[in-house]
C-alpha cells in the first residue's frame, strides 16, 4: 500500500502546484507530473494486463492534450 500512497500524494502536490503557478506554459510541466502519478496509481490499484492498456491510453491521451494546448499557445499548428 505504501507505493500507492506515494503516487497519490505526489499527484496531490502536483495539482496544488498547477493551481499556484501563474504562467500557462509552466503549468503544463506540473501537469505532466500529475499524469505520471495517476498513470502509475491506475496500475498499482488493479494489477491486471487490462490496467496496463488503460494506463497507456490515459498517458498517451493526456500527452496529446498537453501537446495541443502548448501548440495552440505557441501560435497554432503549422499547416503545410
Amino acid at each position: 500500500m505504501i507505493p500507492v500512497l506515494v503516487c497519490a500524494g505526489i499527484g496531490l502536490y502536483a495539482a496544488c502546484r498547477v493551481v499556484l503557478e501563474p504562467e500557462t506554459p509552466r503549468k503544463l510541466l506540473y501537469l505532466s507530473v500529475l499524469n505520471f502519478a495517476v498513470a502509475g496509481s491506475i496500475v498499482l490499484l488493479v494489477p491486471d494486463i487490462m490496467a496496463l492498456f488503460a494506463a497507456a491510453a490515459y498517458f498517451v491521451g493526456s500527452t496529446l492534450e498537453s501537446n495541443a494546448i502548448a501548440s495552440t499557445w505557441a501560435g497554432g499548428v503549422k499547416r503545410t
Binding site: 505504501i2 507505493p3 506515494v6 503516487c7 505526489i10 502536490y13 502536483a14 502546484r17 510541466l29 506540473y30 505532466s32 507530473v33 505520471f36 502519478a37 502509475g40 496500475v43 498499482l44
Partner: peptide
C-alpha cells in the same frame, strides 16, 4: 511496485 513509485519520484525531481 516500488520501481513505479520510484519513477514517479524521479519525474517529480525533474519537473516538479
Amino acid at each position: 511496485a516500488e520501481c513505479i513509485a520510484g519513477m514517479v519520484i524521479a519525474i517529480l525531481t525533474i519537473q516538479g
